[in-house]
Design a protein around this nucleic acid. Structure first.
Lengths: 148, 148
DNA sequence: TTTCGTGCAAAACCTTTGCAAAGTG
DNA sequence: CACTTTGCAAAGGTTTTGCACGAAA
């Protein structure tokens, strides 16, 4: 309850503050995007997000640009599910996780653990700075495997 | 020395056999592509590969189609470095590894270890079948960090 | 000879860019 | 008021598709 960054209202406020702190502007499209990203927390593509905030909300181009801007300052994280479309999710900081993507129905499940810390450390030992990583698991979910 | 799948000639032969076994045809473009992918073993994009086998070798479209076909039967692995272009590398089976990509100069270093086996196991426990994963590390290499 | 691969051209797709107008701090 | 963001239109880049011809098993 006290961890304001983990409840929608607090998370949104913190994100908006981060935007302001970096010299960015808080606009209606951005607030709407953050609201959806935080409350529905599935990674969404620009196209999906655009539909969710209402096509009249703003132009798709604005969604693309805002997603990119918010990723650069660390408010969002970009995921790559290997289907040619980038998806974004809210970055809950330390609370790092990964996804299991069903190759058939494209459903996404969240895995609340991360094992790549060792690799990141290794990369830093090799002289790399500002190290990050992407890790996604792919498979065919039980439902799709059964329905087959 | 005896592990034929780890020397170029043996690896190519094994790959061609895999193609035949799956009902595919062994063609000049495919042989040329495999040769480059095995001998230079950096992940290459379709475009890069096309240049490497000689523009006169075959059409780029053929490269795209062959890469996809060889990935589907497990001869190649597709990597996603998050820059909007897919890259492919020869799949040395058990010999699983990952990459550290420099975000500045785009250089790629290979990491001969994998920590995601635990996650794959977890995914299987959750009922997923045919589980695979992608894991890439990103950072700024020592050279680029220094030259800054 | 039957099935698969190739070439060429064109399309599809996602994402980025230019520029003037509008909004934010 | 200075600077960022937006909208619209258009471009950019990668990957896919259709179809007739050519090649492999």
């Amino acid at each position: 309850m006290s961890d304001s960054c983990c409840e929608p209202a607090g998370a949104i406020a913190a994100a908006l503050e981060k935007i302001r702190a970096s010299g960015g502007r808080v606009t209606e499209p951005r607030k709407a995007m953050l609201s959806v990203l935080i409350k529905e927390h599935g990674p969404f593509s620009a196209e999906e997000l655009h539909k969710k905030i209402g096509v009249a909300g703003c132009d798709v181009v604005t969604v693309y640009r805002s997603l990119q801007a918010m990723e650069e300052i660390g408010v969002l994280r970009r995921c790559d599910f290997g289907d040619g479309t980038y998806r974004y999710e809210f970055n809950h900081g330390e609370h790092h996780h990964h996804h299991i993507i069903c190759r058939v129905c494209r459903s996404v499940e969240t895995l609340d653990m991360c094992v790549a810390d060792g690799l990141e450390r290794l990369a830093r030992q090799k002289g790399y700075q500002n190290v990050t990583h992407t890790l996604e698991i792919f498979g065919v979910c039980a439902k799709c495997a059964a329905g087959k």
